[in-house]
Write a protein that binds this DNA or RNA. Sequence first.
DNA 1: CAAAGCAACATCCTATAGGAAATAGGTTCC
DNA 2: GGAACCTATTTCCTATAGGATGTTGCTTTG
Lengths: 239, 239
Amino acid sequence: MAQQEPREGRLRPARRLTLAEDVYESIKTLVMDHILPPGERVNIDALARELDVSPTPVREALARLEADGLVRKRPLSGYTTTPLLSRAEFDDLFDVRQLLEGATAGRAATHASAEARERISAEAAASIDVEAGDGYRRHAAFTALDAKFHDLIAEVSGSPLLRDTITRLHSHLHLHRLYFPVAGAPDTNTEHQRIAAAIVAGDAAAATEAMRAHLSAARERHLPAFDQLPAPATPRDSA
Amino acid sequence: MAQQEPREGRLRPARRLTLAEDVYESIKTLVMDHILPPGERVNIDALARELDVSPTPVREALARLEADGLVRKRPLSGYTTTPLLSRAEFDDLFDVRQLLEGATAGRAATHASAEARERISAEAAASIDVEAGDGYRRHAAFTALDAKFHDLIAEVSGSPLLRDTITRLHSHLHLHRLYFPVAGAPDTNTEHQRIAAAIVAGDAAAATEAMRAHLSAARERHLPAFDQLPAPATPRDSA
DNA sequence: CAAAGCAACATCCTATAGGAAATAGGTTCC
DNA sequence: GGAACCTATTTCCTATAGGATGTTGCTTTG
């Protein structure tokens, strides 16, 4: 009622256009960064108080996040964050990524503009300066750069639908254990450059193969995360 | 307030668990059947009155539908149903379907249980009795059966993620012109049986190829729909 | 006659209140 | 001592009201 004036010190950034949109982005970040732990119950009212908004936009944002697969809704029991990926789900994710992203790399190699090839090449080269920094910042920067590279190839592939699908999959990847040390950053850069080179050369088969090899290697690099802790049981999964 | 008691004569079916869920299904049907024409504005209040609920669950349902791609939201202007697929988007959809569903067919052929192969074979054979009926009913039954067959293969493929992705794509297909005469129903059945045979035989390459050929043929059968009417301009698309 | 400006309208967006269901804890009975 | 039942609390779910914004139609002016 009387609190229409802008408030200071809020968790979310300056509002863009609609409040619900901001709330959506805020909650998405909370889930991605595991500030809301996977498999945990999400209290709508508490979240609304935390973000300093009414429960209504929170509810709308959660509905969208449910469609994105980041939270789940049990009919009369409330929302919960999606539990961590199991080993089987993780393997499934990378299988699908190989299929989809292998295709985007091939398509990009076949019909991409000269300007687009230039951008890809530049992006692969720019990956080097991420070596600076350390700890969480370094990990976040590396992850962001990797995502950008993959999205760039998807964009250039010329299939909006394929790109959307891959973007959606990437959300699921962030459900993986977060603070896992990225020892293989240099390897990743090398692999990215191999992919970029194949695309620039216009060799579709080589680009597809390079992408699949890259994802296969990335999968291997992530695997030790499953040995850290035994996957916590998620009794809530039972229908 | 005083209208908590169940009401008669409502548009939507008997409520399942939550009101928002029912509203979601109801609106989804309205969009799929083009009762809400593509590209049209969606009035939240009017829809709430029509469904005899308050605007709040309608808003929540629309948020989910937006994530599904069935409606779009322009920040301070309201929701609109997604416009009809353009020729380019239609081609893109079938390109992606070939990629994804070709993979599911191959996977199904490789590792499917004997029981699963039996189900697929039965489903392909059952497609024949859809010849009965006529007009809209026949079309709806045929579409449902086709969707079921494709989903069955996706299920058997053993990749939940792949199956979800394909299901999502199918929603987009329904954005295509609806009342298009399905002249090629017999052809569809023949193609389905070819796919089923390859899967039963365990020939992954043949299954993939049969699926791709089927989708290619289906695409051709749908193409004349674009000649019926010139695609209506959608001026609302401009940012 | 056309274009720009203004005003009224309709619509969306957010906040708050109240009822219903599910969960958790304690108690009692076997 | 364990299990089942009951009660209280918490939480979700729905409905309603009010403020802000975009849109549309009309009027006026060049």
